[in-house]
Computed example of a mutant assay.
Amino acid sequence: MSTADATTTARRSKPLGNAARAARGDGPSGRRDAGRKPTTTIIVTAILAIVAIYFLVPVYWVVVNATKSTEELFGSSGFWFGENFQLFENLKAVLTANGGIFPRWGLNSLLYSGVGSVLATYFSVAAGYALAKYRFAGRRIVYGLVLGGVLVPGTAVALPLFFLFSSIGITNTYWSVLIPSLVSPFGLFLASIYASAAVPDEMLEAGRLDGVGELGLFHRLSLPQLVPAIVTILLFQFVAIWNNYMLPLVMLADEKLYPITLGLDNWRAQTDRLPEFYQLTVGGALLSVIPLAILILVLQRFWRGGLTEGSIKG
């Protein structure tokens, strides 16, 4: 064996140092939970459990009480089932009440949320990409306006939008709810932050050298890198539009244009003189949760790569 080979063998057989063991994950210093106190783990787990209970208890209450009659709704515990299981009868009553208006409300909500979230996501990602990857005059001003838009609640602009749309004659139409849904300052802000980290400038320069146009750079090269951000913005915008109450309340007068949120509130307002509307409202609330649950289950796999993966790229 040559001297060089012997030296190489000796180096390979030499015990690893602490730094090398840490890099490989061997030993106490390389464990992922190194330095984490058991007390911290318990506190974090307890906080997450409390938050989960906070969000799940209302859903559980709706599921349980959707199986009861109106009498059992007030004559039994709200957190346990009644003697008679009437879920399917209650859901049938929801779908057929007022001439079958609830399915119409559901389709309206799908229209507002589906079209609004898809277009708002596209516009937000395109604008966020432009803010992150292009340098132009007034860029900082535009960015400041976007941040200001994030801080303005939607309820604050509902009435001014009503006066604006009333002057051009589109109130009490689908457009009066759809057009404001196409704007998402939060989505634009999130897309710009993610694009600045996830889309390398070198990739764009290489694309330009290969003759790819700016639209091609965005659609063919950048969008695949932005999938986690796209899914996040899409879901947030869909949920925000689906749960929106103030804007349809201000804009719409025709019951046939109502989304589910406004329709359920219309039923709830009739409970003083017609108690059976309590059960219709509870059953309708249960049905309104199902599309959101399906959307989350379908889209969750896109998050497994991690929304923050762009932040750890060198």
Rank of each mutant, 00 (worst) to 15 (best):
L234K: 01
N172L: 08
L252G: 03
T7W: 04
L161K: 02
A269K: 11
A23W: 00
A206C: 05
G99A: 09
L264Q: 13
W303N: 06
R140F: 04
I179M: 06
V250C: 02
L188M: 15
G310R: 09
I290E: 07
N90G: 11
R36A: 11
S113P: 03
A197H: 08
A285I: 05
G187P: 01
M1K: 12
P291W: 03
A22L: 11
W175E: 03
F85S: 07
E255Q: 15
T7C: 05
F186M: 09
L95H: 02
G149K: 02
G148E: 11
E83W: 10
T308F: 15
G144P: 09
S77K: 10
L151G: 10
L226K: 09
A206Y: 00
T45R: 06
A19V: 10
A132G: 06
F55S: 01
S109K: 02
A34K: 08
Q270S: 02
L164F: 14
P103V: 00
A126H: 06
P291I: 03
P224W: 06
I50Y: 03
S167R: 14
A46D: 00
L221H: 06
L111W: 03
L204K: 13
S109R: 00
L226N: 10
K256V: 06
E309D: 02
Q237H: 07
G17F: 04
L297W: 05
L87K: 13
T121P: 04
P259F: 07
F55H: 04
L247R: 01
L190R: 06
S77T: 05
T8P: 00
L164W: 12
I241N: 00
N18P: 12
S109M: 05
T9I: 14
G78L: 14
A285E: 13
